[in-house]
Design a protein around this nucleic acid. Structure first.
Lengths: 203, 203
DNA sequence: TTTATTTTGTACAACTATGTATAAAACTTG
DNA sequence: CAAGTTTTATACATAGTTGTACAAAATAAA
């Protein structure tokens, strides 16, 4: 009986994400977003409820496809240090090759909204906390597997990795050279004793 | 002959800085800023020319009093590594004790405006570049003084320090505990071989 | 075809935004 | 007191903002 939804919700979220990523949240009005989505403001409010409602969906979508997504989920089969190194390498590549130099949408939103917008701010702060805890968890696994020495302060190291991650994502907005961006990550990872070259896999 | 300026320009910049720091640039309208400053919009435009004009002045003021200001200016008399360690310690303290958890105004503005607002974006990007170069310069001095080994890659280390700085400033918006924030900085500095305890000076 | 539902178009309300213009008031110095 | 300048008050123009309301159109299934 119901008329089927005639615009692709997922595709709309993707498009809106690109727009907010480029222009920032406060600068992305419902007018502008609706125009970009090719729908009317009526449809916008019908589909997303409010201006802020869309951003929440956009952030969920973003986090599910951001370059650090591989860190979450099941414990990795490959060595943890290789996973970490590869992930930071990937992040540097993606960030540097983004022609808009937009950095990380989540980090941008933290800078814009944390401690201000109660709802979204709290969500973002908790996402940072979760990510840092995940780094620590991975390092604990590395200790268990003998990849890292037993006395390793995985809590401190995990926080340092989270900091490296966010730093890279901000730095990428100002430092556009991929090699230099990777130099930042590699230098810090080496310092932390967490850098590991990829061991010529599949050979 | 001229009527004296009846509102304190410097104090107004300071007040506006606090407001923009708290709410972000895009969310700080001329209306809101004028009200906060206790002046009319007429006076605002008269004094600052435009919305953007004020931010430029605010950023200049901010940079002149931010916790990393001590890194600039004359080469330090004290050991470079001590200066670096103390500066990062100070930054962690200031950021964690800010009840608004606003982080760094400059970093917030980079996240909000870099690659978007041509004028201010370029200014902020160049400020990052300058700061990174200054870190490298300080490390070069440290090498000259024998504080660091001769083969040190001061360029890579300087970039890593700039990244640590910006990371801390973002992280502070989500991680409010001073000890944990300092753990981030200390762990990274130690990893980079740049951490040095303050040598009980004046004793 | 009727029915149930979603989407759309359009209008409205009530603000708010930036920037400009202009005349009146305030004030200090000569 | 007069001159010169700054500040204020007020209005205007033009555009945009979020959110709501409601009827008309589109659509698929019974």
């Amino acid at each position: 009986m119901p008329r089927p939804k005639s615009f692709d919700h997922a595709a709309a979220i993707e498009t809106a994400m690109q727009e907010i990523w480029r222009n920032g949240y406060q600068a992305s009005s419902v007018n502008a977003l609706s125009k970009e989505l090719g729908i009317t403001r009526s449809s916008y409010y019908n589909a997303f409820g409010s201006r802020e409602g869309l951003l929440r969906e956009v952030l969920d979508h973003y986090l599910s496809q951001s370059p650090d997504r591989v860190l979450h989920g099941e414990p990795p089969a490959s060595p943890v240090l290789t996973l970490l190194t590869d992930t930071f390498r990937e992040i540097c590549t993606v960030r540097a090759r983004d022609p808009g130099h937009r950095g990380c949408l989540a980090v941008n939103c933290i800078a814009e909204l944390a401690g201000q917008n109660t709802e979204l701010g709290a969500f973002l702060v908790s996402a940072v906390s979760t990510s840092a805890a995940r780094f620590t968890q991975l390092l604990d696994i590395a200790v268990d597997r003998g990849e890292l020495p037993a006395g390793t302060d995985t809590h401190a190291q995990g926080l340092a990795l989270q900091n490296l991650l966010m730093g890279i994502n901000i730095f990428a907005k100002a430092l556009h050279d991929e090699a230099e961006l990777w130099m930042v990550a590699k230098t810090t990872l080496e310092g932390l004793g967490l850098y590991k070259e990829h061991p010529n896999a599949q050979l």
